[in-house]
Design a protein around this nucleic acid. Structure first.
Lengths: 205, 205
DNA sequence: TAGATTGTTAATCGATTAACAATC
DNA sequence: TAGATTGTTAATCGATTAACAATC
């Protein structure tokens, strides 16, 4: 039964389930079970059933889950059933990898604009995108009603850029800068820092 | 008092503390407290003290922690006091961003080799590195005694590459491929997937 | 039907927090 | 000394797991 406030830790696992389901679908599977998913993800089947139960009943006793259906449901729950336009700030290597590689396509996001403050970069074409002047950021965000920003600027500029994003109306931020950034309540921020992940493994080597 | 097996969840937070300490040091601070760190990291001061207590006593009542000392201690605990050589597999945009940006320098790691399987890429220079043939990977890993690998290849090749890495002796892997990879017990793997992070925020928008 | 798997409850497990004596 | 902050204990809180009736 869907309760009122699913714990954040549960919400954070849903994208993992969705990713596994996508993979199963790509393999041509139609049906899966909590046991099957659990093995693939390395967690317990009880946890998967419990997690899903916060949002509804998606399975069938004796059979399991229809992959296409569960996938749709998760996308709906995570609000990924339509594409979110995202802006990218920082047209460096990292930004290029994101745009070029285009891993965002098909998973709920689309890069709608790229911004930089370097005169060398502004005006350059990246595929269908033209790098824009960071000073035009707020206007773009408001006009296109963007809610999500990706920050791929040097560490020293990160807090400043985040402030500007929030000022312009952005409410969710993914930062590649390896520093804790302070944001007001109501703004969500996630971090990407490869070093952090590497440093989490060396203890065990 | 240092207990026998600190929980993994505690070990995973240590790099965050280290990062905050680095920042404080860069600001010219000499001393900090669990309260100060807690505010900066958005967690409780009790948690920081409890976490540190798994590894020893690093503070002084009434004063707090000497930043340089605590930083050294954490680096020692995490085995980051000497530089780990790392190999990178996949010389695409993402790989270039990692090498070029060189964010690894000074945080305990150094890219010792870059590998790719494309004839177009092999032989290219990236700064001081020359992209090597992926077939020479095992030899390099053994000869240079590398323990850590970063996988930045297309999704479809990720499992295959990881298998080869493990075969050659790598025991810790950072994967940029957005798929769960299966590894035998004793091998550690961490994932970098920006979409996952974005998908964890949309629920709340 | 018999077998399988769900959704849910209750028990267990583990992590976080509050509180405080020790002490710098 | 008085004030501040540690390290640690015990209490609280929350998450995970085991178990099973329901049922496809």
């Amino acid at each position: 039964m869907a309760s009122l406030e699913p714990p954040n830790i549960v919400v954070r696992r849903l994208p993992l389930y969705l990713r596994a389901l996508n993979l199963l679908a790509a393999e041509g599977q139609k049906i899966t079970s909590s046991k099957d998913l659990a093995e693939r993800l390395g967690i317990s089947s009880a946890q998967i059933r419990k997690d899903l139960s916060h949002f509804g009943e998606f399975g069938k006793q004796g059979t399991g889950y229809e992959i296409a259906n569960l996938s749709d449901q998760l996308r709906r729950i995570l609000k990924l059933d339509s594409e979110w336009p995202v802006i990218l700030i920082g047209a460096g290597d990292l930004g290029r990898a994101l745009v070029h590689h285009s891993a965002l396509q098909g998973r709920g996001f689309r890069i709608a604009g790229v911004f930089d403050n370097s005169p060398n970069k502004i005006g350059q074409r990246w595929g269908e995108l033209v790098i824009q002047d960071a000073r035009d950021l707020a206007r773009f965000v408001r006009h296109e009603d963007i809610q999500i920003g990706i920050v791929a600027v040097p560490q020293e500029q990160a807090q400043h850029v985040v402030n500007a994003l929030i000022e312009s109306g952005i409410t969710a931020i993914l930062s590649y800068a390896p520093v804790a950034i302070s944001v007001p309540a109501g703004i969500r921020i996630e971090y990407m820092d490869p070093i952090l992940h590497l440093q989490r493994m060396t203890y065990y080597l």
